[in-house]
């Protein structure tokens, strides 16, 4: 598993596309942070969770970019057949790839900690709030990457993989809005707690660390990865 993990991480750093993605990621988050900082100079106190909150939306588009290549390319190039005849289990293949993508995301996320350093140097932010938001968005990222990986396993075409993953994530993200147009309060609350936002915006992002939210993202990763492993395995049964 770690050999696959290392190859995936190596691939990210070997390819110029990955650097472009990283640059775009940092430029966007910097703009958001800078904007918030300007506003907070006059109107409101600076929020340590502004970057994670922005990422919770950006990941809908960003996570599929990280994962679209991973399994789609393997099955297109025929290397999947070779991986499946190497002495590694199917789950090690999937987990290695997942951890590779999550690790790369973690590195990018770590880079955004520079904003927290800036914040600490100019004001006195609530560090607990910042830590909670970062833990939240880290788990959130893992869950979206797991979704992206699943769609990469479904097709040989990277573009289709990315598109389907974005669509799926958007539904998971927008599900909260559906709650707003449902009259029944219980149903609305249920819908909201099923969405990606439901376990971030109103908990981690406001400095709340709850087991149920962490469990939601962990469960999401587990389920997505389980399905992905089954899909990879299904290559053995097809003609």
């Amino acid at each position: 598993m770690w050999i696959i993990f290392r190859r995936e991480v190596g691939q990210y750093f070997a390819s110029p596309v990955a650097y472009l993605i990283a640059a775009g990621f940092l430029v966007l988050t910097a703009l958001i942070f800078n904007n918030d900082l300007t506003v907070s100079a006059t109107v409101k106190p600076a929020s340590p969770s502004v970057v994670p909150a922005f990422l919770s939306f950006a990941l809908v588009f960003f996570a599929p970019l990280l994962t679209m290549r991973m399994l789609a390319e393997e099955s297109r190039e025929g290397t999947l057949e070779l991986l499946l005849t190497a002495p590694v289990t199917d789950s090690a293949i999937v987990l290695g790839k997942f951890l590779g993508a999550w690790f790369y995301y973690t590195m990018l996320l770590a880079l955004t900690l520079v904003y927290q350093v800036i914040l600490v140097s100019v004001t006195q932010p609530d560090l607990g709030h910042a830590i909670s938001a970062y833990i939240g968005i880290w788990l959130y990222g893992g869950a979206t990457i797991a979704v992206g990986l699943l769609f990469s396993a479904l097709t040989e075409n990277q573009v289709i993989a990315a598109f389907l993953a974005t669509a799926a994530l958007l539904i998971l993200w927008l599900g909260g809005l559906a709650g707003q147009i449902v009259a029944n309060l219980d149903l609305a609350r249920m819908l909201y707690t099923l969405t990606l936002q439901g376990h971030f915006t109103s908990s981690f992002a406001v400095g709340l660390l709850r087991v149920e939210d962490a469990a939601y993202y962990a469960g999401m990763m587990a389920i997505m990865l389980f399905i992905t492993i089954r899909i990879v395995e299904s290559h053995r049964w097809r003609g």
Partner: peptide, 28 residues
């Protein structure tokens, strides 16, 4: 077992050495 499928499976973005090393490590 060493296996070469009909469609030669390669990672276009890897070097020759990196590629062979990857499979060597994966196979222990």
């Amino acid at each position: 077992v060493g296996y070469l499928p009909e469609q030669v499976p390669v990672y276009p973005d890897m070097t020759v050495r990196g590629y062979v090393t990857f499979w060597a490590e994966l196979r222990g």
